[in-house]
Design a protein around this nucleic acid. Structure first.
Length: 841
RNA sequence: GCGGGCGUGGCGGAAUGGUAGACGCCGGAGACUUAAAAUCUUCUGAGUUAUGCUCGUGCGGGUUCGAGUCCCGCCGCCCGCACCA
């Protein structure tokens, strides 16, 4: 090792080729080693990878490489979530075919990923837009149809009358199409649905078994599934009709002081038909915002219908019926009994419209008349509730439901927020839904031997509307049952279906079927799944459902696809801006355009002052981005990888900084110089360095297993400094070799290069993780804190395991301690062996 | 509004109820050099009458021999959301 600098520009490519040539990272399903599946969420091929991908994939890579070193057969694949709207947008804007655009992007991004040296099994690469992938998806979809998990029903979509297309919610801006600016209409279409609600309870129960998932994600899914148990019952109205309401608090029924229906409720609509004031009110409700935060802070508003409802347990009582802006049509029956005393929204409404607020739950029977200044949702005993008085909330719930059922005016009911999954998309760039519409036979699945139903290549994206509908020949076919003229389904599948089983196809990819059940069992479930929190609900819930659905039809033996989930933080960067003198709007500059010095920054082009803005998520609009290729060119893959792992805990945001990456590049060189000092022939002991080495190996292993990469990095720095300071010895050489192995998963190119030079056998990628001698994990000397009344006054270095009495004597003998005691009487001495002595005087 | 999370030096962050600030970045001083870069050494929470002492983990209480850590009440920031009856 004579070169004084490590040259990533030469080493990176050389070792990447060596790994490819040796097929180092191709997973063997037949291996007898313990198997482990490490997976990061596959990217959408947008064109360029961004630094967030680099962070995500670096984390997975370190774990995958580490697991290989600890004797596992590792499956660590990569592919492309390649269907979706951006390709169609590009096609419309640039006149390229969505497929051509997508495959170009894949080629670029693959090259970018390969430059980072990720230990990926590229032999299993897949793209969801490949008929070899989506054909199997069509087969699975038909299987689920035959199992009764797929059905069609009418459902509303956002229709853009100018672009003749259905819009996603995000494409509707202030009620208008994002591209056409036309007013969006609600249109009812016959669409395909998956029965995810059949699995609601199972999906909920499964969350309890996912110990390896963040509590936050489990909670988000639980709320999304939204199970509630309550009473659905019917009010008799004074106009002769009845009104169904749902409540989760039947116990508070005697506290009901009004009834409210959603603006979209049929009753409200009927009233509005001959009452323009009501119609105006409903219109006003629709004009308001629809997000939770907007509605929560919006004032509670109502319209008195002048209809009254008869209280089912107190027929003399009449409750006014309101149309209210805070009642949702989509949940329950779209109508509620309102209990102001025990629901804050009802309380706010009652206060505004001067309706009675009745306490029916109190801390004790004596507190029945305690005034309510806000709604009280807590537990207690029933008061002011006739037959229910004195009961607990739980008993009263059961009593009311029992009575409603026996008297026939209501029934206990479980209501779910979760709704069936609408999977129809009226778009070209997606998986064709493999069904045929026949006038005589109805909806008929495409026979499996005719799969895949392939998208036509010759489409014109410049004309509005779905090209599959207007293609001259594609949709025309024969009915598989009766051979009559028939048409293909022109809807394509939601891309969330593509990502609901790609991990299965990675694990097993026969040509004649979606996957091999036995081979899947070798790898599934995914041991560690890593991705962004933005997928906490939809992707992860759909994948859990799809896996269950396949298990339900016997195609799989696992129900939960991802045993452990990790959601990493974003990569952030400060912003650089100037005010536009004309309109005062900020103008952003990229880090390349700005020279940062000390406190301030200037624009390189003209030397003008730049305002340094907040550190926020990297985004194109704020121009606070760094290009992975550019930084790999400049610093090498290993420095970039090291930066991704350093400092910030992986679940938190990582602030990118030029100084930070430069520091990492310096550390790469420092290690290079250290490795050059490796001397296999060195002799002599360095017991304390040997201890430090074994402790570090054990700690780094634990940190990597826990994905606490920032801690592992800190420990490697510590050991490096200790080795730097140590004199030559056999132990020092061993420690240098250990550092090399510890950094191998993190800085694999540097590690290979140095491994070769010190005469390591084979590739370090195939080397074993260094062994730990348990005897050397503990020190024989410990430093004891000596406190007086809880304040540190001295420290003592003593032999480990010194008895308490001796520790106490040593502590009391300390001059500093005596000065702190200052002659006071020692009342108590707390001794924690090998830790501290606390003298209470 | 509800749910969840987080508040520790100039910055990112360490810390099984037991020596707060590990490790890194920034910054200061010095060595090497004709010089610079690189590298190395060293200092770096605040205050102070400096071998010491006092204060210090968002704020106010509490439990404890001992609290960044546990409990109660606030404040602020971030994320999620579906007024879910």
């Amino acid at each position: 090792m004579t070169e004084t600098r490590f040259e990533p520009s030469q080493a990176d490519g050389r070792w990447q080729r060596a790994w490819t040539d040796a097929r180092s990272f191709e997973a063997d399903s037949g291996s007898t080693k313990p198997k482990i599946y490490v997976l990061e969420m596959f990217p959408y091929p947008s064109g360029r990878i961004h630094i967030g991908h680099v962070r995500n994939y670096t984390m997975g890579d370190v774990l995958a490489r580490y697991k290989r070193m600890t004797g596992h057969e590792v499956l660590h694949p990569m592919g492309w979530d390649a269907f979706g709207m951006p390709a169609e947008n590009a096609a419309i804007e640039k006149g390229v075919h969505p497929g051509a655009w997508t495959y170009d992007n894949i080629a670029n991004m693959k090259a970018q990923l390969q430059r980072l040296g990720f230990a990926l099994d590229w032999s299993r690469e897949l793209a969801t837009c490949d008929p070899a992938y989506y054909g199997h998806e069509q087969a699975l979809f038909i299987d689920l149809y035959q199992a009764g998990l797929v059905y069609r029903k009418e459902s509303a979509v956002n229709w853009d009358p100018v672009d003749q297309t259905v819009l996603a919610n995000e494409q509707v801006i202030d009620g208008r199409g994002w591209r056409s600016n036309a007013l969006v209409e609600k249109r009812k279409l016959n669409q395909w649905f998956l029965k995810i609600t059949d699995f609601a309870q199972d999906l909920l129960d499964g969350l309890g078994t996912l110990d390896g998932w963040p509590e936050k994600v489990r909670l988000m899914q639980e709320n999304w599934i939204g199970k509630s148990q309550g009473l659905q019952f019917s009010f008799n109205l004074t106009n002769g009709e009845t009104l169904d309401v749902y409540t989760t608090r039947p116990d508070t029924i005697f506290g009901a002081s009004f009834v409210a229906v959603a603006p979209d409720h049929p009753l409200a609509q009927a009233i509005a038909a001959n009452n323009c004031e009501a119609a105006r009110f409903i219109e006003q409700c629709r004009a308001g915002g629809t997000t939770a935060a907007e509605l929560e802070t919006a004032e509670k508003l109502g319209f008195d219908t002048c209809i009254a409802a008869v209280h089912p347990l107190d027929p003399q009582r009449r409750l006014p019926v309101y149309i209210a802006n805070f009642v949702l049509m989509d949940y329950g029956t779209g109508a509620i009994m309102a209990v102001p005393g025990h629901d804050q929204r009802d309380f706010d409404f009652a206060t505004k419209y001067d309706l009675p607020i009745i306490r029916v739950v109190a801390s004790s029977a004596d507190a029945a008349d305690a005034p309510l200044t806000e709604a009280e949702a807590g537990d207690g005993v029933l008061v002011n509730s006739a037959i229910l008085n004195g009961m607990s909330v739980a008993d009263a719930k059961a009593a009311v439901i029992g009575r409603a059922e026996s008297e026939g005016w209501g029934e206990g009911k479980t209501v779910w927020r979760l709704r069936d999954w609408g999977v129809s998309r009226q778009r070209y760039w997606g998986t064709p839904i493999p069904f045929i519409h026949c006038d005589a036979c109805g909806v008929v699945p495409v026979p499996k031997d005719q799969l895949p139903v392939v998208l036509p290549e010759d489409v014109d994206m410049s004309v509005p509307g779905n090209p599959l509908v207007r293609h001259p020949t594609w949709k025309h076919t024969q009915c598989p049952s009766c051979s009559a003229e028939a048409t293909r389904e022109t809807d394509t599948l939601d891309t969330f279906i593509n990502s609901s089983w790609y991990f299965l196809r990675f694990a097993s990819q026969p040509t004649d079927k979606p996957f091999d059940t036995a081979e899947i069992a070798q790898w599934m479930p995914v041991a560690q799944y890593i991705g962004g929190i933005e997928h906490a609900i939809l992707h992860l819930l759909y994948a859990r459902f799809w896996t269950r659905a396949l298990a339900h039809i016997g195609a799989l033996e696992v129900k939960e696809p991802f045993a452990s989930l990790f959601t990493q933080g974003m990569v952030t960067h400060e912003t650089y801006e100037q005010k536009n003198p004309d309109n005062g709007q900020p103008v952003y500059f990229t880090p390349d355009e700005v020279s940062r010095s000390g406190e301030g920054a200037v624009r390189i082009a003209d030397g003008s002052a730049i305002t340094i803005g907040p550190v926020v998520k990297m985004s194109k609009s704020k121009k606070n981005v760094v290009d992975p290729d550019a930084i790999v060119d400049r610093f090498g893959a290993d420095a970039v990888r090291w930066f991704m792992l350093s400092d910030s805990p992986p679940e938190r945001d990582l602030p990118w900084s030029a100084a930070g990456i430069e520091g990492c590049a310096r550390f790469v060189q420092r290690l290079w110089r250290l490795f050059a000092q490796y001397d296999a022939a060195a002799t002599g002991e360095d017991k304390s360095l040997a201890r430090k080495m074994h402790q570090t190996i054990a700690a780094v292993a634990g940190d990597v297993e826990a994905l606490s990469f920032n801690k592992a990095v800190a420990r490697i720095y510590e050991l490096t400094s200790a080795v730097d300071k140590a004199a030559a010895s056999a132990d020092r050489s061993a420690a240098i070799r250990a550092i090399l192995l510890l950094i191998a998963p993190m800085m694999p190119h540097l590690a290979e290069e140095a491994w070769e030079r010190i005469g390591g056998e084979g590739l370090i990628a195939d080397a074993a993780w260094p062994a730990v001698d348990p005897a050397l994990l503990v020190d024989d000397e410990v430093t004891i804190a000596v406190q007086v009344k809880g304040k540190l006054r001295d420290t003592l270095t003593v032999a480990k395991g010194l008895p308490s009495a001796e520790l106490e004597a040593l502590a009391l003998a300390s001059e500093k301690v005596q000065r702190a005691i200052d002659g006071a009487e020692v009342r108590k001495v707390i001794v924690v062996p090998d830790r501290l002595v606390n003298i209470v005087a």
